[in-house]
């Protein structure tokens, strides 16, 4: 009976995992270019060599990691600050929560267009107006700071996520312990350092890991705004693979890139699964 109930989920997930993985590895080892149907056969490491020696590849890896590290830093630190701020009650806390979480529910393409045009347009955009108000020269965001612009968009989306998770975790803290610490004259910094931070260590690591998994394959925001440019300045690994496959039609080389992306994601996943696995034991 349990097997019968489990099997639909297990079988479909197994297919979903094994088939694409096996095919990606297979494609990466053969010549497979939609524009050159004549060249076929085993390619050995050729596709990997081609991918690695492509100067865009190292740019893409660096951009992927920069995007990841900055977004995680911004969202975790910002989310922590906001979560601590609204942990205690104040008038309108419920509404503030709803406002704060909203950007997370905005689809990536709308997020990207909203920022690209209405916020970051160098002439009419809101940011340009703010810059002008302070007597500064407006920035041409997507031209001059393409990667940073994408980081802003993605942080706007993920800050609410980090904030919500940390907020939820703070709610489960032992009130009496905190009050006891206050009685004993602990100041805010001491409470933060010795009570909040240890309590938040695990949720923070979970937030980081989840974000890493999602941020490794950021795509729509780049696709709708910068198209990876100018040059390769905002090309990440996901976009590079897409470009190689659906613009250059080279499935073989793109698959080699995909294998790198899978390896990168798995390194991260191992850590996350450890953390969550520990939780299961309890």
């Amino acid at each position: 009976m349990p097997r019968l109930l489990l099997s639909p989920a297990v079988i479909t997930l197994l297919i979903w995992m094994v088939v694409p993985l096996a095919l990606t590895i297979y494609f990466s080892s053969i010549f497979y270019n939609l524009m050159q149907p004549d060249s076929t056969g085993f390619a050995g490491w050729m596709n990997y060599e081609f991918m690695i020696t492509n100067p865009a590849f190292s740019d893409a890896i660096i951009n992927t990691l920069v995007l990841l590290a900055s977004t995680v830093a911004i969202t975790v630190i910002g989310g922590l600050a906001i979560a601590l701020l609204i942990n205690e009650t104040f008038p309108g806390r419920g509404i503030v929560r709803l406002l704060l979480i909203s950007p997370f529910f905005v689809m990536p393409t709308v997020n990207a267009l909203l920022w690209k045009h209405m916020m970051m347009n160098p002439i009419y955009g809101v940011l340009a107006q703010v810059w002008t108000f302070f007597g500064l020269t407006p920035i041409n965001w997507l031209q001059d700071l393409p990667l940073f612009s994408v980081i802003i968009m993605i942080s706007w989306q993920w800050l609410p996520f980090a904030c919500l998770i940390l907020m939820t975790s703070l709610q489960s803290m032992d009130r009496e312990q905190l009050e006891a610490a206050e009685m004993d004259g602990a100041n805010y910094w001491q409470k933060f350092r010795y009570m909040y931070l240890p309590h938040l260590a695990r949720p923070i690591s979970v937030v980081i890991m989840i974000e890493v998994i999602f941020l490794l394959s950021v795509f729509a925001e780049i696709f709708t705004t910068t198209n990876g440019g100018p040059g390769t300045q905002s090309t990440n690994l996901a976009y590079l693979i897409f470009n190689e496959a659906l613009q250059a039609f080279d499935i073989g080389v793109a698959s080699a890139g995909a294998v790198f992306a899978i390896i990168l994601a798995n390194i991260v996943a191992i850590f996350l699964i450890r953390i969550i696995g520990k939780n299961l034991e309890k």
Partner: peptide
Amino acid sequence: FMPAVGALLP
């Protein structure tokens, strides 16, 4: 944790 790009081509 299979990245979407990893599965896209197959």
